[in-house]
Amino acid sequence: MTEIQIEPNSFEMVFFDAEKIANLASEVAQILELGDEQIKLRIDETSSMGRSKVESYEPIILAVDGGAFENTQRPRYLGETRTSETIARLLMRIIDRRSPGFANAPEDDLLDLPLRVAWDTYTAGRLNHLGLSTQKKRRQYQFRNRHGFSDAADEAFTFLWGSPNKLVWADIERISVGCRIALV
């Protein structure tokens, strides 16, 4: 059973329930087969922005803005789908990085925006397959912003979105850079 630690344990600015978040994280970890690992989740409840990142890969520490877990229809309340999706995306990044095919991927801070978005697209597509991500059009819009509003970029998006567990970092890099060369 995955052990989830939520920090802080109670919230003052938002109406989040740490236990609920822990349960959602645990469910996601089960689906992603993360086994018995310990996961620490740091939430900055003062921020209504939607930033999220992997703070540490070993042990797993995820850091998110409260806004990333928020119900967009009801600000300050927990959005369960968004919460699961945000956690799943970060965990999937960790799973990828642990596989040999991603050994050459630059560190998170050194990833340029198009590469990050291309990787996120591949991730979101796989999560969609697992029933954990839904916003395909939103991901496509992000992808187009970084790779051009063109048929080539749309084809690349479709490919990344629909490639369950078969790409390595070199593929993502090639596809992303390829779109950008086509843009020039």
Binding site: E12, M13, V14, E45, T46, S47, S48, M49, G50, R51, G66, G67, P75, R76, L113, R116, R138, Y141, Q142, N145
Partner: peptide
């Protein structure tokens, strides 16, 4: 909202000009 009221997609935090170059610009 103690985090600052929002108007039209902006939040209470210190922000910068909305351009696609921001990491969260498209969103």
């Amino acid at each position: 909202d103690p985090r600052g009221a929002r108007v039209g997609g902006s939040t209470g935090e210190k922000l910068s000009k909305l351009t696609p170059n921001l990491p969260n610009g498209p969103d």
